[in-house]
């Protein structure tokens, strides 16, 4: 097999790897924030807010990421906002991932008995305080392992940016296969993705065993 493409496209590869990592990390931060907000909306008890949260989660989860990315890519310029592919990718991935993260966080929070919230509120805490100091720390262990899985998905899903010339790892394969055999390029990139995702996956397994008592594989 001919791996000489690594020499020709070295710079493109490093750029791609860096973009995959940075877009995934950025989207993780944003989707955590957005996901938490949506989760809180859903359990807020206020009908309109909960309804909005539910609609958001259901709509985003049931539509393809590709459509969402294209939408952000083409719809924003139509209203005069022009963003780089990197920014478009970060926004698209954040929106998509937030709908999954919202569900993870909601499940975690709801696993904490209702009485605790009531007790915290009656002892004078505000809703936000009670959430931050009482509920979330307990839900943490239940939330983190599935969050890890979502992060793995995020890294994998960032490959979709290739359809808008996003400049990440999968786009690198498009560049490299212009003038090279495809098999070595894809095998190489597959190994790189595994190097990114498998350690995360092992960490998730470890946390699941440690915190959730799940049986090891």
């Amino acid at each position: 097999m001919d791996f000489s493409f690594l020499e020709f496209y070295q710079q493109e590869f490093y750029d791609g790897l860096w973009t995959t990592i940075s877009v995934s990390l950025l989207a993780l931060v944003f989707s955590l924030i957005l996901g938490t907000v949506i989760a809180v909306l859903r359990i807020s008890g206020v009908k309109a807010l909960a309804g909005f949260g539910t609609a958001y989660v259901e709509f985003i989860r049931n539509t393809p990421l590709v459509a969402q990315i294209f939408f952000v890519f083409f719809a924003l310029p139509a209203v005069g906002i022009k963003l780089s592919q990197f920014a478009v990718g970060t926004i698209g991935l954040s929106i998509y991932t937030s709908s999954y993260i919202a569900e993870v966080i909601r499940a975690g929070i709801q696993s904490v008995p209702r009485g605790q919230m009531e007790a915290a509120r009656s002892s004078g805490m505000t809703y936000v305080q009670a959430m931050w100091y009482v509920i979330l720390p307990q839900a943490f262990k239940l939330i983190v392992p599935p969050l890890g899985n979502q992060f793995i998905n995020l890294v994998k899903n960032s490959s979709v940016l290739a359809v808008i010339a996003g400049g990440e790892l999968m786009y690198f394969t498009d560049v490299a296969t212009t003038e090279a055999d495809v098999t070595p390029v894809y095998l190489f990139v597959a190994v790189v993705y595994l190097l990114l995702t498998v350690p995360l996956s092992l960490l998730v397994h470890f946390l699941e065993r440690r915190w959730l008592g799940k049986e090891s594989s």
């Binding site: 890519f73 359809v163 808008i164 010339a165 560049v175």
Partner: peptide
């Protein structure tokens, strides 16, 4: 250089000002 899946996509990107 930015590579798109096909010319239709590339043209849509040009029209969108991307």
């Amino acid at each position: 250089i930015q590579l798109y899946e096909n010319y239709a996509d590339a043209f849509t990107a040009l029209r969108a000002g991307q």
